[in-house]
């Protein structure tokens, strides 16, 4: 059986965002391609760099180093318009190609552990992005200002990072 999804015009697949309990965030989305393709777009820096930061965001990804293997490191540097950049970085705790990536978020004091899984739905992929914070307080802090969405927050974090 061959099925071809109409590529042009169709609405994007829905994205679900859910807070579970007092420490977890879960985002799910189906992609019309097999896990190896979605994994590739996530694990190759040149590809990753092209989608991780939305064009509408007031920040840009100026550099992106990804060493996608268990124990490898990543470092993303964002620009907020001025000369200074700010970095997000951590370690890949577990990498199972085409299936699962787990990483730490070490730029803050109580960073979340993020897990992405790619589940094969027969040619399509169910992607689950899961973040677990070390404490309810850490999630509460993240609740108060999303670092990814708010440039002000980014600048504040930038200051913190400089002091480290």
């Amino acid at each position: 059986m061959t099925e071809h999804v109409e590529e042009a015009g169709g609405p994007p697949n829905p994205t679900s965002v859910e807070r579970r309990g007092d420490r977890e965030l879960i985002v799910t989305r189906i992609f019309d391609a097999p896990p190896r393709t979605v994994y590739r777009a996530w694990s190759e820096a040149k590809l990753f760099q092209r989608w991780w930061v939305p064009k509408s965001a007031p920040i840009s990804l100026v550099s992106c180093d990804i060493d996608m293997r268990t124990g490898g490191r990543y470092r993303l540097e964002f620009g907020t318009g001025g000369a200074e950049t700010m970095a997000f970085y951590g370690i890949y705790l577990e990498v199972v190609p085409n299936q699962r990536i787990v990483w730490t978020n070490d730029e803050g004091e109580e960073g979340a552990i993020t897990t992405v899984t790619f589940e094969d739905l027969g040619g399509r992929t169910l992607l689950t992005f899961h973040e677990i914070y070390p404490s309810p307080e850490a999630l509460e802090e993240a609740l108060q200002g999303s670092a990814v969405a708010l440039p002000e927050q980014l600048q504040q974090l930038d200051g913190v990072l400089h002091d480290l």
Binding site: P12, F31, V38, A41, W51, K55, Q144, S146
Partner: peptide, 27 residues
């Protein structure tokens, strides 16, 4: 604040994943 946070994440991930759709098509 919680509702705001959820919405901010939804908007962010929707935009991200729309761009990811394009890259996936390319691959």
């Amino acid at each position: 604040a919680e509702a705001e946070w959820i919405e901010a994440h939804r908007a962010l991930f929707e935009a991200r994943f729309a761009a990811l759709d394009d890259i996936i098509d390319e691959i």
